[in-house]
Amino acid sequence: MADSSFDVVSKVDKMEAENAVNQARKEVEQRYDFKGVGADVSWSGDSLLLKASSEERVKAVLDVVQSKFVKRGIDLKMLDAGKPYASGKEFRIEVGLKDGISTEDAKKVTKLVREQGPKTVKTQIQGDEVRVTSKSRDDLQATIQLLKGADLDIDLQFINFR
């Protein structure tokens, strides 16, 4: 019998992210408490730049962006928000989108599966994803449940289950 497998990935749906950013931008433009403070949200493919005239306002813009991402079904673990910093008379926060599993996180996933998962399961790091194989589909299902319950710094999706 052939081995069954699935891939563990961590990807952001770019269209959903762009929709969340557009919704956040509209809300920031319309809200009364953001009038006259230079609040702005700009999107450049895989990162965001939030601007406002004070540190409190730029943090409020970040809260708006985070709420829109949650409403669009994107986990906040996928956002990599930096610290507010001053640039002239305005404060900025750079927010990156995590896309793919880093080598360090892939090693954590494989270690977790090796230590706590079923013994028949084998893992293999393939670029920015992890392939999990086993002869038993039940063991693969148990591995998925283990990874869903694990407290990792990334949001995991499971694809190509065969």
Rank of each mutant, 00 (worst) to 15 (best):
L140N: 00
K108Q: 09
S54V: 01
A17C: 09
E16C: 08
G36A: 08
V64T: 15
S53T: 10
S54W: 00
M78T: 12
Q141T: 04
D138G: 05
S47A: 15
V109D: 00
E90A: 15
A52Q: 09
E29H: 09
V21K: 03
K135Q: 14
V64P: 03
D63E: 12
M1P: 12
V9G: 00
Q124I: 01
K108A: 05
M78F: 01
G100I: 06
I101S: 01
I74H: 11
V130H: 10
S44I: 14
L76V: 12
V121E: 04
D63H: 10
D13I: 00
L156D: 00
V121Y: 07
L76M: 12
Y85E: 14
A142Y: 03
V121A: 06
D128W: 01
T123A: 03
E90I: 13
S134Q: 02
L152H: 06
G73S: 11
D139L: 05
Q116N: 10
K26M: 11
Q157I: 03
P118D: 06
S42P: 04
A106P: 09
R57W: 02
V109C: 02
D80W: 02
V61E: 12
R92C: 06
D99N: 15
V109T: 04
G96I: 00
G36R: 06
G127V: 06
A52G: 10
A2L: 06
A52E: 04
T123N: 03
